[in-house]
Design a protein around this nucleic acid. Structure first.
Lengths: 230, 230
DNA sequence: CTCGGATAGTGTGAAAAGTACACTAACCAT
DNA sequence: ATGGTTAGTGTACTTTTCACACTATCCGAG
């Protein structure tokens, strides 16, 4: 089947930068390409936009198809890349999205999935084709900038977490150490965290309290114009 | 002439939100549409992306064609809008850009240009077609957010300006008053302004000093990681 | 059962930044 | 010379940021 238009059109794609976090720091989810160009190479998950779906729907569909990630992950538009030769074959404009997922939920799936998705540490990944290196750089910069004034971090953690986990998240993303006492004061003063009353289990030292992110309160405070700068 | 592709493709357009400033506050540059849909309606300048130009080139070309704005204006990508029915005729995805121009330079051109471009105050403009109201809202929010931590304001002023002009610019963009002494202290402490040694002329009161934005110094300081939060 | 190892959890003082605020200086026009 | 108009300047108070070290709790090993 063929489709004709009066004027030539670039192809329109979406690409996704999926960030996850574990003990080793910030990771990114990459897939092995199943089609040309760059078939067999490791690249960002993505694909062409269909006519009956929005850009975000296209991004979520591709994520589901290529990595098994569900529809609820945090996903935000990043930037649109339109250099003439970013795809060697033909003109392709790509709307990039970035996603944040709780790596713990998706470690197994990605590891066993037939679609050959895998997590890579940022400093330890293969060279990416197209302009995916650039997209990844922009995504990392955006994440670092945004995490300072929006509580994005919670998207990367399990539903209940300790303050130490939250702190090392910030340290991993920002790539610099944070003072424990000042961090706790600051983050608790925002009143976005709710104590669950529970504690860590199975650790061979004093068990830390488990907190939960209070999303409703966040929405309310944000509407009221409160600042969440770290 | 007709162009065929194996899979259907959305059309790809760019739209531009051009901000300018005068005594009446923040203004936006709009054009009268010469083609359907919405022929004759006032809308954001924009048009379709060609295969041999990048997205930014397309935005600058459309600006030149429809408003006479030159190639040097400050222009930055805003967001990409891809709702299914944002264009009533067919699927069109639009990459929006926003521009900042010195209104003084372009007041005459826009007023006399055959292409029927005109400046409108934000609170006093016709209803815009497509999703251009949404695009404008996003652009305004971005400008307000960005002006706080990047010295964008200078793009809206003539090359030499007084501190009072700069202050009213911030007041116009942020839509709230700023303390004169604190503003001057803060902005001068950034060391981005250079005294020209000249003064205002033709005013019937004490003449203010004229300053110039030191772009080189800005680039240097920015690289060094300095913060320019207002 | 106690002792060592590991992480949780807590407060204070000093420095820097932000904020509110009012008068004199300079210039022009009448 | 006087009045009108905007330029230009400093200080005291409050708030925020930053650096920094010890006790509490739990587990496991001996």
């Amino acid at each position: 089947m063929s489709h004709s238009y009066e004027h030539p059109r670039p192809a329109l794609a979406v690409d996704c930068v999926v960030f996850g976090l574990d003990e080793n720091g910030l990771q990114v989810l990459l897939v092995e390409r199943g089609v040309a160009p760059f078939k067999g190479r490791t690249a960002l998950p993505g694909g062409f936009v269909r006519l009956d779906e929005t850009l975000e729907e296209a991004a979520r569909r591709e994520l589901e198809e290529e990595t098994g990630l569900g529809a609820k992950v945090f996903l935000e538009q990043l930037y649109t890349f339109g250099d003439l030769h970013r795809d060697p074959r033909e003109r392709v404009v790509s709307v990039a999205y970035y996603a944040l997922v709780k790596l713990s939920d998706h470690r197994v799936r990605a590891a066993t999935d037939a679609s050959a998705a895998a997590w890579f540490r940022l400093g330890d990944k293969p060279q990416l084709p197209f302009d995916h290196e650039q997209i990844l750089r922009v995504a990392k910069a955006r994440l670092q900038a945004k995490v300072r004034y929006q509580p994005l971090g919670f998207e990367l953690l399990p539903p209940r977490f300790t303050l130490a986990q939250l702190q090392s998240l910030y340290e991993a993303v920002l790539e610099k150490p944070v003072d424990k006492r000042n961090f706790r004061k600051k983050i608790l003063s925002m009143e976005l965290l709710e104590e669950t009353g529970e504690r860590e289990e199975g650790v061979s030292h004093r068990a830390a309290r488990l907190y939960r992110f209070d999303r409703k309160r966040y929405v309310a405070l944000e509407k009221a114009g409160v600042n969440f700068e770290l």
